[in-house]
């Protein structure tokens, strides 16, 4: 296979298991647990479900407009946990964020199914630290 044009950019980088990530350039939280080609299935202006292109099964999600959601619902209300672990660690509940987003839109079967899928995937990784969100532009 032809050498990847970015191979020099990732030299020495180790592979890891997937986990949710806040992408400041897109102001979105993404999580995809299956490593395969995906089709993005837009549910509404907040949630997109990632589906396997081969099976059609949902394998992840994207929460869009995180900064705006923080402003709308109150960033402090998203913070559900603090603990002392050498330093104070504040965390944001992804389930809380998804439920708030769901309640804010029309209660259709399609949305309910999509948000239900996304909530299930929050299981192993239910929270992001607020440190991850400090990159959010003002």
């Amino acid at each position: 296979m032809e050498k990847h044009f970015l191979s020099a950019f990732v030299e020495g980088t180790e592979r890891e298991s997937p986990k949710p990530w806040y992408n400041p350039d897109g102001d979105c939280i993404v999580y995809q647990f299956g490593d395969e080609a995906i089709v993005a299935d837009r549910v509404d202006e907040i949630l997109t479900i990632y589906r396997s292109v081969e099976t059609g099964k949902s394998i992840g999600y994207q929460i869009k407009g995180v900064c705006a959601l923080g402003r709308k619902f109150g960033r402090d209300t998203l913070i559900v946990n603090c603990r002392q672990d050498r330093e104070e660690l504040k965390e944001i509940s992804l389930c809380w964020l998804l439920l708030a987003a769901y309640e804010d839109g029309p209660k259709t079967i399609g949305r309910r199914q999509a948000y239900s899928d996304a909530l299930e995937y929050c299981g192993p990784h239910p929270r992001l630290t607020t440190r991850d969100l400090d990159l959010v532009p003002a």
Partner: peptide, 22 residues
């Protein structure tokens, strides 16, 4: 700009997405 953090994220966690940067 293809941000370094996106390149790293795809390479680390989603090799298929990294390949599809082509």
């Amino acid at each position: 700009v293809l941000p370094g953090r996106l390149i790293s994220y795809y390479y680390k966690f989603h090799p298929v997405n990294y390949e599809n940067l082509r």
